[in-house]
Amino acid sequence: MQKINVPWEIKRSLVVKAEEETDPRFGHKPDERPFPDFIKFGVINLDKPAGPSSHEVTAWVKRILSLKRAGHGGTLEA
């Protein structure tokens, strides 16, 4: 049987090319983004219920959170 690399089992590690400090005046660690950016740059790991389509579920999330935009990562057929 041919060996196939499972994408979520590939192990990588970081190698350093150069060193530098980051300036605390700009940006935020993703976990520490202040509101409302935390929502604007957020993703929900949603458990889709049976019945409604992926698009309907996404539209509901958009409405519940009163957002302008929401999108899902890969249609799961109804």
């Binding site: 993703v43 790991n45 999108g71 990562g73 799961l76 109804a78």
Partner: peptide, 17 residues
């Protein structure tokens, strides 16, 4: 069909690709 449907909000919709 049920299960994982990652849903990206606002600016994050750019990561869905």
């Amino acid at each position: 069909m049920t299960g994982i449907l990652p849903t990206a909000l606002e600016e994050a919709t750019k990561v869905v690709q």
